[in-house]
Amino acid sequence: MYTYKYPRPALTVDAIVLKEESHELLLIQRGIEPFMGKWALPGGFVEMDELLMDACKRELQEETGLEIPELTQFKTADKVDRDPRGRTISVLFYGYVPENAIVQGGDDAASANWFPLDQLPELAFDHAELIAEFVEQILK
C-alpha cells in the first residue's frame, strides 16, 4: 500500500438511463445516508480493479436489475461540494432501454422507478443539475 502526501478524492460513476421513446428517466430511491429516502441516479463507488464503464454497469445492475450492453460517457462531475461524505468525482454515462424495461430496487437502493423528465422528484446530491445539463446537451 502506498502512502501519499496529498489526500485523494473518491471516484464514483452514475448512470442516466432513459426509455428509448418516452425518454422516461430511471431513478433509485436511496436506502442509506446521505440523502436516505431521496431519489438519485443509479451509481456508486468504483472498485480498485474496475474500469469505469464496468463499474457503471455493475452499479446499475446491483441497484435496479438492469443490464445494459452499451453506455456512452457523458461528462465528469467535479464540483467540490457535491457529496457531503467528502471530495467525490463522478463520471456519468448514459444509455437507452426498451419501453417495457422492468426495474426493481436492490443493494443500497430502496426502490427504482421511471419518471417523466418534466416531473422529477426532489433529487439527492447535484443530480438535478446533471440531468438538466444532459437534457440541454444531449436531448435538445
Results as ranks from 00 to 15, higher is better:
M1K: 10
M1S: 11
Y2I: 14
Y2M: 13
Y2S: 15
T3N: 07
Y4V: 07
Y6D: 09
Y6I: 15
Y6C: 10
P7V: 12
R8I: 14
P9C: 12
A10C: 12
D14N: 08
D14P: 01
A15F: 00
A15K: 00
I16L: 10
V17M: 06
E20S: 11
E21W: 09
E21H: 09
S22D: 07
L25M: 06
L26Q: 06
R30Y: 00
G31V: 07
G31I: 12
P34F: 03
F35R: 03
K38A: 07
A40C: 11
L41M: 01
G43R: 01
G43E: 06
G43Y: 05
F45K: 13
E47G: 10
D49S: 14
L51F: 12
M53H: 04
D54N: 02
D54L: 04
A55H: 03
C56S: 11
L60T: 12
L60V: 10
L60Q: 03
T64M: 01
G65S: 07
L66P: 08
L66C: 11
E67Q: 15
E67G: 13
P69D: 12
P69N: 12
E70I: 13
L71A: 11
Q73S: 15
F74A: 15
K75F: 11
T76Q: 14
A77Y: 10
A77Q: 05
K79V: 15
K79I: 14
K79Q: 15
K79S: 14
V80A: 09
R82K: 07
D83K: 01
G86P: 13
I89E: 05
I89R: 07
L92W: 03
F93W: 08
G95S: 13
Y96H: 03
V97F: 09
P98V: 11
P98L: 10
A101R: 04
Q104C: 05
Q104G: 00
Q104A: 07
G105E: 03
S111W: 03
A112P: 02
F115V: 01
P116A: 05
L120Y: 01
L120F: 10
P121N: 11
P121D: 06
L123C: 03
L123D: 05
A124W: 03
H127A: 13
A128H: 08
A128T: 04
E129A: 14
E129P: 05
E133F: 08
E133M: 10
V135C: 08
V135H: 05
E136T: 12
L139Y: 00
L139A: 01
K140Q: 05
